[in-house]
């Protein structure tokens, strides 16, 4: 299947990219690695009139330590570059694990951090060829009035299956969004609407410039655990990211965050410093967090494995992530 037709621009810097977005915003798609957008275009799930290729915008690439100790990851940094960064591997090992869990090495060579965060929600009944989709009623995500996953569903239940977002949210990352004449930084979780049909709170004329990681704190441990049928290529069927800052003796969790992926239409924050603030680390505490993950996960039957199994696996993966992070 050929790609649909479009007008093509390949700007060299951020100002000209923002200018193009200001002119073409509503009908334009930004092309980074292409591993999400071009697949959707081939399947006629997207047919933007204008494609703006970002690969020549050097300012959007690279991992840089800022003066205040925070780390700026450019949106066009590839997952392979993220994996090869010794700074990330040493200071943010959880992020290294999450990047390693994305697809497979050749796709990591192409896929970018920004593209991963902005990847579309997915559904077994939506991410199919046009011919396949003709066999079913037009669903909400495709502009119709029905949901093919949840009988009688009143909105789109497509699943968010990004690997990086849960870990980056657990790490309290912020994202920088720019449009012509202005720029704003917001907590990464605010980028996600939790809605299947339109999963991102980003305007059409905005550019995701990069991700800001706060300085790595002493005694911080992180872990990402992912369920998939094959150990490569697959999107997560459910995933759990934890990040904990421990007391010096390691007996107390001073602060922490637990986030799930593929458990709803956006990343699902199970706990952000409620159960995890100044908590004594015990088996009962781990069980309680695993139970909270089980309750928070709301999978629907739109991936290959049944939702009841994925919900139970949210509990298992949470426990596994906590135990591994704490080296128990």
């Amino acid at each position: 299947m050929k790609l649909p037709e479009f007008e093509y621009f390949s700007p060299r810097d951020i100002p000209s990219t923002l200018e193009l977005l200001a002119i073409h915003g509503a009908q334009a798609s930004l092309l980074a690695g292409g591993t999400d957008l071009l697949v959707r275009m081939r399947q006629r799930l997207a047919a933007p009139g204008v494609v703006i290729n970002l690969k020549d915008v050097e300012e959007l690439k690279g991992i840089e330590k800022q003066k205040d100790g925070s780390i700026l990851i450019g949106a066009l940094t590839t997952l392979t570059e993220l994996l090869e960064s010794s700074l990330i591997r040493k200071k943010y090992p959880g992020l290294h694990q999450a990047a390693e869990a994305v697809a497979a090495p050749p796709l990591q060579n192409m896929g970018t951090v920004g593209g991963n965060l902005l990847q579309e929600t997915r559904c077994l009944y939506y991410n199919q060829t046009a011919a396949w989709r003709r066999a079913k009623p037009v669903c909400f995500k495709a502009g119709g009035e029905t949901c093919n996953t949840v009988k009688g569903g009143k909105h789109c239940f497509a699943t968010y299956q990004g690997d990086l977002a849960p870990m980056l949210i657990a790490l309290s990352a912020r994202v920088v969004l720019s449009r012509k004449g202005e720029s704003r930084a917001l907590p990464l979780e605010a980028l996600y609407s939790g809605k299947g049909k339109r999963p991102h709170n980003k305007d059409a004329d905005e550019l995701l410039q990069g991700v800001l990681l706060p300085p790595a704190e002493k005694n911080t441990v992180c872990r990402y655990e992912k369920l998939r049928l094959r150990q490569a290529l697959d999107y997560p069927l459910v995933g759990a990211a934890v990040c904990l800052t421990l007391s010096d003796d390691g007996k107390l969790c001073k602060s922490g965050c637990l986030v799930l992926t593929a458990a709803g239409s956006g990343p699902v924050i199970v706990d952000d410093n409620a159960m995890m603030k100044d908590a004594e680390i015990t088996d009962a505490w781990i069980d309680a967090l695993a139970e909270a993950a089980y309750k928070a996960a709301k999978p629907v039957p739109n991936v290959l494995t049944p939702p009841a199994y994925r919900k139970r696996m949210a509990r298992v993966l949470t426990r596994r992530a906590l135990n591994k992070a704490l080296a128990r």
Binding site: S10, L31, G33, G34, V39, N53, K55, P106, L107, M110
Partner: peptide, 13 residues
Amino acid sequence: NVPVRSCLTLAAD
């Protein structure tokens, strides 16, 4: 010398 998917790469890129 980096393996990529040519089906998801625009020739113009």
